[in-house]
């Protein structure tokens, strides 16, 4: 394709990204570096601040299997589960945002509808993990649309297996952030992830690969223009896709473990759909 067409595709995907994803990297980095003046995020660093911070978290309650009377023993357990439920609600909303973004990729909605479902089922958690990276630094992560900063140490202090959920994402994100992608680069990279032609069960791979190839060309050109001094950035970025698959596999296994061990845990129906028979 002509360079002008590739640039137009890049602009289109960047506009869709800005339209559907409310917390951009530019905004997140401004919050993390304290450039937002009085609007500093609320910091959650222990159980007390978690309980205080819950009012900031947009929490749609997911019904638990049964309401058990709270004892002093399980109050802290309940806090962790409640927080986990809030994370699920936000994740489900994020899946909706990613779906809208996917639909804006030229050609995506013309693919076989079963294949659209497969691409989203397998791609959406990878996309969500990539989108976490701009919200993170080595010390913690923004949550609740940037209203809260939760420390990495606090997440590590939660009981098992909750404490194991975020640490691999921090390790990945800190390395990923050294690539210094901006929002316009991210938009193309997310589209490349969604258009992976090797997802299990795809019916018609060829049109997906053709779409991905065009977006890959657009991404390669974008990185050359936007990061002229960053050698091999395109290759380094593509390598991240391998790490990402392992992180998603481990994440899904942890969720499956949670489902078995936490009697009060209810998985959001949309997330259940996505994770069922995933890996």
């Amino acid at each position: 394709p002509e360079a002008a067409d590739l640039r137009a595709l890049s602009r289109h995907l960047y506009e869709a990204y800005l339209k559907y994803f409310p917390l951009t990297k530019a905004k997140a980095r401004a919050i993390l570096s304290g450039k937002t003046g009085d609007n500093a995020p609320f910091v959650i660093h222990d159980m007390k601040s978690l309980m205080e911070g819950e009012q900031f978290i947009n929490c749609k309650q997911i019904p638990t299997q049964e309401h058990q009377p709270q004892t002093s023993c399980n109050i802290l357990d309940a806090v962790e589960l409640r927080f986990f439920h809030s994370c699920q609600s936000r994740s489900a909303e994020a899946v909706r945002e990613v779906t809208e973004f996917a639909k804006s990729i030229p050609g995506f909605i013309n693919l076989d509808l079963n294949d659209q479902v497969t691409l989203l089922k397998y791609g959406v958690i990878e996309v969500l993990i990539i989108m976490m990276a701009p919200l993170m630094n080595k010390d913690g992560t923004l949550i609740a649309y940037g209203q809260i900063f939760m420390t990495r140490e606090f997440l590590k202090s939660l009981r098992k297996p909750f404490c194991q959920m975020m640490e691999p994402k921090f390790e990945f994100s800190v390395k990923f952030n050294t690539l210094e992608l901006d929002d316009s680069d991210m938009a193309l990279f997310l589209a490349v992830i969604i258009l992976s032609g090797d997802r299990p069960g795809l019916l018609n791979v060829k049109p997906i690969e053709q779409l991905q190839e065009t977006v890959l060309h657009a991404l390669e050109l974008q990185l050359k223009l936007n990061h002229p001094d960053s050698l091999q950035l395109f290759a380094k970025l593509l390598q991240k896709m391998t790490d990402l698959r392992q992180i998603v596999t481990d994440h899904v296994h942890l969720i499956q473990l949670l489902k078995k061990t936490e009697v009060d845990m209810c998985l959001h129906p949309l997330l259940q759909e996505i994770m069922k028979d995933l890996y």
């Binding site: 749609k60 639909k103 129906p269 759909e273």
Partner: peptide
């Protein structure tokens, strides 16, 4: 596959945000 993924399918089929998440 569509049958097993009703919410995803619905999200794909509608142009706005139709599903009560």
């Amino acid at each position: 596959l569509k049958e097993k993924h009703k919410i995803l399918h619905q999200l794909l089929q509608n142009s706005t945000s139709p599903v009560d998440l």
